[in-house]
């Protein structure tokens, strides 16, 4: 009976996801629906749908990457409040990006990626020195985050107002600023990284029960380091591609975990749910005040926060 209800819920979720994807493809500044583009012969309509498709694809992969990294960090750090940005990757990326935008160097993603990865390297060595003690890593990440965000504010102090606006838009996670010429590279690398995590679902199960528990089950620091790097790289690449989109990496794993905690279920379902959530957020962002766009990071933060509060109040046992 329980298995039956799980199958039903999976079917419902999948249908819901497909529906959201169809709506996302049919929404935009120009009134062309998915159906028109498929059945009609209008070349321009097909082009517009293609552009929307790239954007939806990007949003889906970004959401999936963030949700999967969130799952991994919550297991590694044994903390339900951990998320992809807990270790300061966002701070590093923001620092890199703001320098790139303000000095008009152009390659914002490259700077952001370098900033993110440098932060990861620093945190990794700190974590190693602390034998991957979760609380110590979190504190180190938060401290580093503070250092980097004051760095960002320092850069702002010297910048021209118009570049500050551009940086702020980037910081709030804006899919319209993403570089769609690199979308294949981005999606491929996320696909590889998230697929890799599936081989570690049992490792993650064991790691989430505690450090001693993991050691006595034969988990070594090598496994932990691999998972750390997979999650950190996925986050760094994502932040470099689209800026800082918050909350997906925190609420999605949480919400999915309330159904089932095993990582064999948690990882793939979080990926799908995270992807769909961000597609939805992006669709809302570009349709409520057309033709203007609200960065998806703002939408996920706003609605995600409210959703999380509702979840907290209704299902106290899961948090």
């Amino acid at each position: 009976m329980k298995k039956f209800s799980i199958i039903i819920s999976i079917i419902l979720v999948c249908t819901g996801c497909l529906l959201i994807l169809a709506i996302a493809l049919s929404t935009g500044a120009s009134h062309i629906t998915l159906l028109q583009a498929i059945t009609g012969t209008d070349f321009v309509a097909k082009q517009i749908i293609m552009l929307r498709f790239l954007r939806v694809l990007m949003a889906f992969f970004v959401g999936a990457a963030l949700a999967v990294s969130g799952c991994i960090f919550q297991a590694l750090l044994k903390n339900p409040l951990a998320e992809p940005y807990t270790l300061g990757v966002s701070g590093g990326a923001a620092f890199g990006a703001s320098i790139a935008i303000i000095t008009a160097s152009g390659a914002v993603s490259v700077y952001a990626f370098i900033g993110g990865v440098c932060t990861v390297v620093v945190i990794f060595f700190i974590a190693k020195a602390m034998q991957f003690h979760p609380t110590a890593i979190i504190l180190a990440g938060i401290s580093l985050g503070f250092v980097l965000s004051s760095g960002v504010l320092l850069v702002f102090a010297f910048a021209k107002p118009d570049t500050i606006h551009k940086t702020l838009m980037w910081l709030s996670g804006d899919l319209s600023m993403a570089h769609y010429e690199h979308i294949t590279l981005y999606c491929m690398s996320i696909l590889v990284l998230t697929t890799m995590t599936l081989f570690f679902h049992r490792h993650l199960d064991i790691i989430s029960f505690g450090t001693g528990f993991a050691t006595t089950h034969g988990i070594s620091t090598v496994h932990i380091a691999i998972l750390f790097w997979i999650a950190s790289l996925a986050t760094s690449i994502t932040v470099a591609a689209t800026g800082i989109i918050g909350f997906v990496g925190l609420i999605v794993p949480h919400a999915v975990r309330s159904i089932k905690a095993n990582h064999a279920f948690l990882l793939p379902v979080s990926a799908i749910a995270g992807g769909t959530t961000l597609v939805l957020a992006d669709t809302i962002g570009r349709s409520i005040v057309m033709p203007y766009e609200i960065p998806s990071g703002i939408i996920t933060g706003f609605f995600g926060g409210i959703f999380f509060l509702i979840l907290l109040l209704t299902r106290r046992d899961t948090v």
Partner: peptide, 24 residues
């Protein structure tokens, strides 16, 4: 194998928790 107090009691089913013992 060792039995210590579980650091974090997570909502796993008993069956899937015992199955973790077969991991090594």
């Amino acid at each position: 194998s060792s039995v210590t107090d579980i650091e974090r009691v997570l909502p796993y089913t008993v069956e899937s928790f015992i199955a973790l013992g077969r991991f090594p």
